[in-house]
Amino acid sequence: MSKDYILEVSWGCPSEKWPTNGLFQFDQAKALKEIGENVVFLALDVRSIKKWRKWGLNTFEKNGIPVYEFNFPYGPLSPKYKFIIQDYCFNRAISAIEKKHGKPQCIHVHTCQQALAVSEYCRLNKIPYYITEHVWPIDMGAYVNERMKTTYKAATKVIAVSNALSQVLKDYCGIDCAVVHNIVDLNSFEYAPSNKRDDGVYRFVSAAQVEYRKGMDILVKGFSEFLKSGVKSYLTIMGDGSQLENVKKLAIELGIQDYITYTGKYERKQFAEELHRSDCFVLVSRDETFGIVYVEAMACGIPAIASMCGGPSDIIDDSNGLLVPMEDPHALAEAMKKIVNIEYDSEKIARDCRQRYNSQKIAKEIKAVLYDQGNDFGE
């Protein structure tokens, strides 16, 4: 049996078919393992039945970490029933985990939505649980909302991934959070200045799921206004989503379709390669609790433009990019004009990024939260 292990609980585990599902959470599990923690990873995957995968409990090892994945694809159910299903999945999975590894010394769960399933188990077994929150609280109806507030308050500690999210959680249910930024796996993102092309063209790149909240429509409108300044420039939009066709239509309506390239779905390696060909990363989301892609860009020495939508305000300052108001294409166009003429120290951007967001540093900060509660994990 495993001794004194941390059970990491997520909404998914990355796979070949779903490479971004639970990616950041599994990165954190890897980082904790790398600093000497004993970790078991549990994915409670209750995504829509449209994202088909095998039902039930699946066990395997990934990067030396035991993984338990309980899949329960479901249909159009209310949040209340979704969490009943999630409770069932957790109870089935924890039984299998205990048989192999014994009871965990603590549970570190990602988002309160997943923590709903572990809180009663932890209360009955006197096991501390910690929540790292990645998403804004949303209205899921009175029953779920009250259960979430109770789950937050019963946690040994709640960690928010940005100062903006920490403040929202304090306003939402009166809890004081620790702030620890997301772990970012920077292995694919290296500073490579020699890859830049000296052809007088300024290249912007954006990468995200092309959904309303990511503000790709704002980006296209702002880029259209920026092009009127006469700067020779191109924009690459990486990602797929429900709004991609609408974004393409908007570019055609604005007459700038020849200045934008769309890559569709991408992986980290492809994103890194595109960053090495680009001069600036830009993503003007309508909300972000953190913003992994900004960090990945900066690890390559690329400055960034972001909207003041929450998380990016922790990441971007005058040394590495520009912040603009939300929902403001004109402000974005002005920032694009400005950033073209700023000579950033790309090597310093990359170096500072690695100092702030390397996995070992963030893992130690997470571990420090556990130590602060009087526990002795890893000793």
Rank of each mutant, 00 (worst) to 15 (best):
M1A: 15
L7I: 03
W11R: 12
S15W: 02
K30N: 12
A43Q: 03
R47H: 15
K54F: 13
L57H: 13
L57F: 12
F60N: 08
E61H: 10
E69Q: 14
P73F: 05
Y74I: 14
Y74S: 15
P76Y: 14
Y81I: 04
Y81A: 03
Y81S: 06
I84M: 14
N91H: 15
R92G: 12
I97C: 09
E98P: 06
H101D: 11
A115I: 07
A117I: 06
S119M: 09
E120L: 10
Y121K: 06
Y121M: 05
R123K: 15
N125L: 11
I127Q: 04
Y129S: 01
H134P: 01
P137I: 04
P137T: 04
D139P: 05
G141K: 05
N145H: 05
N145R: 07
E146V: 05
K153D: 01
N163P: 10
L169Y: 11
K170W: 07
G174F: 05
D176T: 13
C177W: 09
A178K: 05
V179E: 05
V179H: 07
N182Y: 00
N182M: 02
V184Q: 07
Y191K: 05
Y191P: 03
A192N: 11
K196F: 07
V201W: 02
V201D: 01
R203W: 03
V205S: 06
K214L: 02
D217M: 03
D217P: 05
K228N: 08
L235I: 10
T236S: 12
T236F: 09
T236Y: 03
I237L: 13
S242M: 15
S242Y: 10
E253C: 11
L254W: 09
G255T: 07
I260R: 04
T261C: 08
T261Y: 10
G264S: 09
R268H: 14
R268C: 10
K269M: 08
F271H: 07
A272V: 05
R286F: 07
D287K: 12
F290H: 13
C300Y: 04
I305P: 00
G311H: 02
P312N: 02
D314I: 00
D318I: 04
D328H: 08
D328P: 01
A331P: 03
A331C: 13
K337Q: 14
K338W: 02
K338H: 10
I339S: 05
I342G: 10
D345F: 14
I349F: 08
R351T: 14
R351Q: 15
R351G: 02
Q355Y: 11
Q355R: 13
R356P: 01
S359I: 00
K361A: 06
K361Y: 07
I366T: 06
A368Y: 03
Y371P: 02
D372C: 08
Q373P: 01
Q373T: 10
N375C: 13
D376M: 13
D376I: 11
